[in-house]
Simulated assay, not measured.
Amino acid sequence: MTKLLLSLHVLAAILAIGPITVAASVFPRYARQSAGDGAQGPDGVTAAFLHKICRGYAVVGIAVPVLGVATGSRMGVLTDAWLLTSIALTAAAGALLLTVVLPGQARLLDQPGDAIPELRPAAVRLSMTTGIFNLLWATVVVLMIVRPGSTTGV
């Protein structure tokens, strides 16, 4: 059962978190480019689609920590420092996604075409926040692989 849970956890992380990190990373570029041609132009449609991907996969992404806790419980490592750190980083990434990234994307999509001066700084801030979100996930992945103190760690 542990191997099945671990496999589902890893698959959920790849299939849910991967698309969010990519879509969120490229969103600001298309949001900035859509300012000139409006929300109905090709870049505006792309930005709206990327936002929809982020929202949809954020819901599916809840499976990642749920399966992770179930796996950790079966493995008896729920009190290990590396896992507690991973849980905290995952919570921080989730909070960042829900409170900053997704609302920031929605605000950029709602900007009128004549708001170009306000659009660029907002897109830059969103890019930076998305980078932090991605860095948090990368750190969790490293902790999951290295697992400090484990017998399988290097």
Rank of each mutant, 00 (worst) to 15 (best):
M1K: 09
K3D: 15
L4F: 05
L6I: 09
L8P: 10
H9P: 11
V10H: 10
L11D: 08
A12W: 03
A13W: 06
A13F: 07
I14N: 04
I14A: 11
I14Y: 01
I14K: 08
L15S: 14
I17W: 06
G18Y: 00
G18M: 03
G18Q: 06
P19Q: 02
I20H: 02
V22E: 07
A24K: 06
F27G: 00
P28S: 04
P28K: 03
R29D: 13
Y30I: 01
A31F: 04
A31L: 01
R32A: 07
S34A: 15
A35M: 14
G38D: 03
G38R: 06
A39E: 11
Q40H: 13
D43P: 00
G44K: 02
G44E: 00
G44Q: 00
V45C: 10
T46K: 11
A48F: 00
C54Y: 09
G56C: 01
A58D: 05
V59H: 15
V59G: 10
V60A: 15
G61R: 09
I62P: 08
V66S: 12
L67Q: 09
T71L: 08
S73L: 14
S73T: 13
R74L: 09
G76D: 02
T79P: 05
T79S: 10
T79K: 01
D80R: 11
W82I: 03
L89D: 09
L89W: 10
L89Y: 08
T90E: 09
A91N: 06
L97G: 04
T99C: 12
T99G: 09
T99S: 13
L102A: 09
P103E: 14
R107V: 12
G113P: 03
D114W: 02
D114T: 08
A115S: 08
I116C: 14
L119P: 04
P121H: 00
V124G: 13
L126D: 00
S127C: 12
F133N: 02
F133W: 06
N134E: 06
L135F: 03
L136D: 08
V140D: 04
L143S: 03
I145M: 10
V146N: 14
G149P: 01
S150T: 01
S150A: 11
